[in-house]
Amino acid sequence: MALRIKAHWHDEDAERSIDEIGSAIAFNAWRIAKEKAINLHGEDFIYEDDHQRFAVMIEYLIFQLALVDRIVTERLEIEGDHRRDLIMKSAKHMSKHVQDNMADIFGAGDYIQPFIAKLNQRGAEYSDFNFTDEGPTYPFMRHLGYEIQQVMGAGQENRWVIDQVMDKDGIDIYNQISCVVMGMFE
């Protein structure tokens, strides 16, 4: 069953704050990341435990935030403080989803700081990759696949996860999050 994303506002005439838009982007990004993590399992890739599953979801979230940054900058031509505020608000709301969901599974703890640290690390890495009119370039997608393969391990059962992520899931994620972002600004 296909994931239904919420790419439009119910009241299209109402003006939205950057925080509201960031919250909507983060909500959809979380749902997309969760669905793609479940999809990997459905494609017979093996998770050792829930920590590994969440690590994959976090990689998907970070990838999406990098895409959001490129989409708003290059397609919507939002720059400067507005762009920075949107990315910061989206990251803040993503971190709340990470905190709430990890606390539900693993118990009390600070899950935000490790997420932000990884977000900053990966953000610097993704900034080196190009984005075209068609979307993220091959190296951009390969980096996502590589990071997920590192999380899942290169054992026999997960040997081809990089191909699944690059050829299918990464493209689906780009199409879904692009639809969300463009819909938030219509």
Rank of each mutant, 00 (worst) to 15 (best):
F106R: 00
F106Q: 01
F106A: 10
F106N: 01
F106C: 13
F106H: 03
F106M: 00
G107Q: 02
G107F: 03
G107V: 06
G107H: 08
A108L: 09
A108D: 12
A108K: 07
A108V: 04
G109Q: 08
G109D: 04
G109W: 00
G109K: 02
D110V: 09
D110Q: 12
D110P: 07
D110L: 09
D110F: 08
Y111H: 05
Y111S: 06
Y111M: 02
Y111E: 00
Y111V: 01
I112N: 05
I112L: 07
Q113N: 15
Q113T: 15
Q113I: 11
P114F: 03
P114I: 01
P114R: 03
P114H: 03
P114Q: 02
P114N: 01
P114C: 05
P114W: 04
P114A: 06
F115D: 01
F115Y: 11
I116Y: 10
I116C: 07
I116L: 14
I116H: 00
I116S: 05
I116P: 04
A117D: 12
A117Y: 11
A117H: 13
A117G: 08
K118S: 08
K118F: 06
K118L: 11
L119S: 08
L119T: 10
L119H: 05
N120E: 14
N120P: 08
N120T: 15
Q121M: 12
Q121N: 13
Q121V: 12
Q121E: 13
Q121Y: 15
Q121K: 15
Q121D: 13
Q121S: 12
R122Q: 07
R122F: 06
R122I: 00
R122S: 06
R122M: 14
R122H: 11
G123S: 11
G123I: 04
G123V: 00
G123Y: 03
G123N: 07
A124Y: 15
A124F: 15
A124R: 15
A124V: 14
A124I: 11
A124Q: 15
A124E: 14
E125W: 11
E125C: 15
E125P: 12
E125F: 13
E125H: 15
E125R: 15
Y126L: 08
Y126D: 00
Y126A: 02
Y126I: 07
Y126H: 10
S127Q: 03
S127T: 02
S127N: 08
S127L: 08
S127V: 02
S127H: 07
S127I: 06
S127M: 09
S127D: 05
D128Q: 14
D128P: 06
D128G: 14
D128L: 13
D128I: 07
F129Q: 08
F129R: 09
F129I: 05
F129P: 03
N130A: 12
N130M: 08
N130R: 10
N130K: 09
F131Q: 04
F131E: 02
T132M: 08
T132Y: 04
T132F: 03
T132W: 11
T132V: 06
D133G: 12
D133S: 13
D133Y: 10
E134G: 09
E134P: 06
E134S: 11
E134Q: 15
E134N: 15
E134L: 10
G135E: 03
G135Q: 00
G135F: 02
G135Y: 06
P136W: 05
P136H: 03
P136F: 04
P136K: 02
